[in-house]
Write a protein that binds this DNA or RNA. Structure first.
Lengths: 253, 253
DNA sequence: CGCTTTGTTGACGGGGTTCAACCGCAGTGG
DNA sequence: CCACTGCGGTTGAACCCCGTCAACAAAGCG
């Protein structure tokens, strides 16, 4: 059944400490992820309006930002670090529904409660708006709502691609696709796409790809022995033959 | 690899014939799926504005409404019938990413081209708007854009639930969840939720649940022998013990 | 140092895929 | 009317991939 026992207690959903007036140094105009974030829908002049509502949240590695079932009070944009979106079945089976990286938006849901828990993989910083403020901003700036819809659609497309992976692709194919996705994200952040950093554990990857840690590990060694990738250490992969990976992940959109 | 060979040619993407001024008999105000559809975001008085742009499309069973890769020109709302959203891998593996029922909206995507083909399972009728008209309607009626965002989020939640199914649930659990989903849809349409009609084939269900036809069939017999369901014929299932199904599908949100 | 966690590899077994046969049904055409 | 065919669904038997169980190395940390 692939149930892993966690020896250390799951991090408590600590009371969110939202620091008002975030990015004191630069404000929204100097925001490092502005070009990636939803805020790019608004002209720079409106930054002041944004800043009035924005606040920063710092989440140390392993801590919980939001807990499944909690009432949704904030929406977030990841500024730095990385997080995982997870859910548990009653018997302990875990799903990782996705990884959240700088520029990603958290808060696409009509539900009044969180449908997934969100845990920090590394120390992370997020820019937070109360759901209410977000609603008001959307009413005031239709471009913002349009941008949100646009992003929700992209997210939907990506999630459907993952469906394809899980339903009909072999373990190696899934891993190849995953590595390419991570590379694409790095490129989006302006980093070198040939070397991919994997902040998450093998267990996270397994629960994301619908496999076991052992299978994930074996797939890594398989790709390595094929010469498609090289791993300096478990968290750092170099894509030696991206074409080979693409051939495997082919037709994932 | 689970590749099924289709002996008959795949239906051609026939030129869409959009009949202007749809629902001649009643118009939008008399629309049977209005309460389910995005149009419910607008007051009935605005129906006239809608009708100017709406048109009907009739798709016979087995025919293709939209082909993966085609440029996206229309968005649709299903009025009657049912369709499947599919995609193929180059080697013939198929994924059914979802089923579309009355009230469902087709067109959540920023992409300029369709990411999936859409085929009619039964004879179906859809209400169509050109993407351009839809854009203009959204600009004019912010409530509409908000409704779209709302729906996209619901769709995203549902798709993530499916991820959970595919990644971490056993075949019987997946089937149980699927049957409950179908029952919930029937309820939404005001029909009896204890008896579920399955217009799609076992192959469709298999490709949707990430299984083979054989496994799906065996799961049906398993549920039947447990007394959880009864099947009058393959397309008509009665849910005798919904609680039993829920226990299986537990925690799928 | 002990202890835990993470990652990797090996051996084994089971569940689902694969392969195959069969039935019922709907066309189809002699 | 009845063979013939194709298709959808079900069931059985064999195989094999991946999950399970186990052992071990390396790294982090008190």
């Amino acid at each position: 059944m692939n149930i892993r026992v966690l020896n250390r207690p799951i991090g408590q959903a600590s009371r969110l400490r939202v620091v008002q007036n975030h990015c004191d140094a630069h404000g929204c105009t100097g925001c490092l992820v502005r070009h990636l974030a939803i805020c790019s829908a608004l002209p720079a002049e409106e930054a002041a309006a944004l800043e009035q509502h924005a606040g920063d949240v710092v989440v140390p590695a392993g801590q919980v930002l939001a807990r499944e079932g909690d009432t949704r009070r904030y929406v977030f944009t990841v500024t730095s670090g990385s997080l995982r979106r997870i859910r548990f079945l009653p018997d302990g089976r875990r799903l990782v529904a996705g990884f959240l990286m700088p520029g990603d938006f958290i808060g696409f849901s009509g539900a009044t409660r969180y449908r997934h828990s969100i845990e920090a993989i590394e120390d992370s910083v997020l820019c937070a708006f109360s759901s209410q403020d977000m609603r008001e901003l959307c009413d005031r700036y239709p471009e913002l709502e349009r941008e949100l819809l646009e992003r929700a659609c992209v997210e939907l497309d990506n999630t459907r691609n993952n469906l394809m992976s899980l339903a009909r692709m072999t373990p190696v194919e899934r891993l190849a696709g995953f590595l390419l996705d991570m590379a694409a994200r790095r490129k989006r952040q302006g980093l070198d796409e040939a070397s991919v950093a994997l902040p998450m554990t093998r267990a996270d990857i397994a629960d994301y790809l619908g496999l076991t840690v052992e299978t994930v590990s074996r797939c890594f060694t398989k790709l390595r022995s094929q010469g498609a990738i090289a791993t300096d250490d478990p968290q750092h992969v170099r894509l030696l033959q991206p074409e080979a990976l693409e051939a495997l992940a082919e037709a994932r959109g």
